[in-house]
Design a protein around this nucleic acid. Structure first.
Lengths: 204, 204
DNA sequence: GATTTATGTAAGTAGTGATTACATAATCTG
DNA sequence: CAGATTATGTAATCACTACTTACATAAATC
């Protein structure tokens, strides 16, 4: 990286730092992200980043926001593809899009869910997008029930159950609990199977 | 803490450091644990811990082992209480014991599942105890099937599903995703409900 | 009782987040 | 358009961290 700079001022240092942090996280892991290294990659001194982010937490929060936007965008794309399907199948598509993004971007998902290392609750973006994804999940389940796809009429606890299942699979991947069962492809098929099994339990 | 010491040698510094680290984690959070502070609480200099643990990771691994032993012990106690119940109820007891321990010891569970910050795979204790808990889960599900308690005969994917659900609920608690729904009691009842809903889907 | 070994101390290294005083470029204003 | 103002960079520094090294002291062993 280490972008060469002809002017004294960078021009778009803020975004460059976010991109650098995302790249470091992807290449070397989340805990290898340092303010200095992000600055270095952007071609700037070690103190410069602090003009744009008062603390490392503020930088990481902005990084999480960027990651969350990409996560949300990916889900939208996949849901659009599934637009003509029945509610339960769309719910499945959402779950699979979620899990695939996590497999493809483990460190970025890690940053999003690192709620103690970022100011999650203070970020409208993070809270809002998170809420959007949750709402999508709930709405699809309600649609599935309305369409008579479910075994039981009471879906009171199902959304939490579904979230816990997907989040659990995602975190198990992040935390290296699928390592013994092979690579990303194997993990993906296991996750997909698990999701399908769950849907089979719910469905008529 | 800052144990006073009359002899030059501590006598049991290794264990004192592990206990100190657990206490710091519980009181101030996992990332507040430093080798220096653990040494300080044990009443020794900042370099002394390195005689017992070559790296911070080694200390944290030992801490995780201690936490895992306590976790395992708690599960044993609760399972003993449920000894006379049917398999599915014992499975439920295991899940609830798991989740209650996490609620009572969030930072300790966090350390156990921090697989990048500890040498999980290099620790026979961690790998072994983890495997024991997983085997308990699987065995009880098989017993439940054998006892004709389940709707479907095929339980192929159920253990993973169950693990993901419980692990997901646990991590959601750790990651602060239950915060908006009130304190530990509320979270516990939500988790319990979620587990019961899942069992209801499985059961005949 | 002398020697060896285990375990502590003290001081120092390099890397981190963060702050400060200062320098330079972009922008605003008359 | 020129001078003042403001935004944004640099360099030096601080406190803290994991970790190392040289040395001191107690315990264990012969």
């Amino acid at each position: 990286m280490t972008t060469q700079r002809k002017t004294y001022h960078h021009g778009s240092l803020r975004q460059a730092l976010i991109d650098a942090a995302l790249a470091i996280a992807r290449e070397d892991g989340v805990d290898q992200v340092t303010v200095r290294e992000a600055g270095k990659r952007a071609g700037v001194s070690s103190g410069a980043p602090f003009r744009h982010f008062p603390t490392k937490t503020a930088l990481m929060t902005a990084v999480a926001e960027e990651a969350m936007r990409r996560f949300r965008a990916r889900i939208s794309v996949e849901l659009d593809k599934a637009e003509r399907l029945d509610p339960l199948s769309r719910f499945r598509a959402l779950g699979i899009a979620y899990l695939r993004w996590v497999i493809d971007n483990p460190t970025h998902f890690e940053i999003i869910s690192m709620r103690r290392a970022i100011d999650f609750d203070a970020s409208e973006t993070l809270v809002g997008l998170n809420e959007e994804i949750r709402n999508l999940m709930v709405r699809m389940l309600e649609d599935a029930r309305a369409a008579g796809q479910l075994r039981k009429a009471d879906i009171e606890g199902v959304p939490l159950q579904a979230r816990a299942l997907v989040y659990g699979l995602a975190r198990m991947w992040i935390d290296g609990q699928f390592a013994q069962w092979g690579g990303a492809e194997k993990a993906e098929s296991l996750m997909q199977q698990s999701l399908d099994d769950f849907l089979a339990l719910l469905a008529k």
